[in-house]
């Protein structure tokens, strides 16, 4: 088995610069609605070198990518980007994560899109698809084999 890179080696967060001002949790929609989620605390843990705890917890999967913390942090730390990096490392280390990500990755790698065109309902319960809407066929990579192979190669490399 190949030796996987340690999270520290690929992790660059400017977490030490955090002055715990609290702008991020006061902006964060998830902090209001989900108990135990607080971007300021996430940054504090990273500053203390406790990334491993965060990656093992479900907390990092609860950010909704609103980017308010990234926009407003006076130290340009971007809790959002720190959380994204923690997610990438957690997946790389095969730590538990929401199943939805694996399904989406598989779909994109194999078909070029996150899901196949869906049958949708009108308000009067009629079924519609792209064709009955008069829309052209959905696009996808012309050389699907080359596209799939490239993504597989990237995902198999020792990077996050």
């Amino acid at each position: 088995m190949t030796q996987k890179k340690s999270p520290k080696a690929v992790f660059q967060a400017n977490a030490e610069a955090c002055d715990q001002c609290g702008k991020c949790p006061s902006s964060c929609p998830v902090t209001i609605h989900v108990e135990g989620f607080n971007p300021r605390q996430i940054i504090a843990k990273v500053a203390l070198g406790r990334e491993a705890d965060l990656m093992k917890s479900q907390v990092i999967w609860t950010c909704t990518s609103c980017l308010k913390c990234k926009e407003r942090c006076p130290e340009e730390i971007s809790p959002y980007d720190v959380i994204q990096a923690l997610r990438r490392i957690a997946i790389y280390l095969e730590l538990p994560h929401p199943e939805g990500y694996d399904a989406s990755v598989k779909a994109v790698v194999e078909t070029g899109v996150v899901q196949q065109p869906q049958l949708v309902r009108t308000r009067s319960k009629e079924r519609k698809d792209r064709k009955s809407m008069g829309l052209p066929p959905a696009e996808k990579p012309r050389d699907m084999a080359a596209y799939t192979e490239t993504l597989r190669e990237i995902l198999g490399e020792e990077t996050v």
Partner: peptide, 16 residues
């Protein structure tokens, strides 16, 4: 020949 922009899922999975 267009494909998924990668955001998500890859933004949370693999940067490259």
């Amino acid at each position: 020949g267009a494909s998924c922009c990668g955001f998500p899922p890859f933004s949370s999975v693999n940067e490259l």
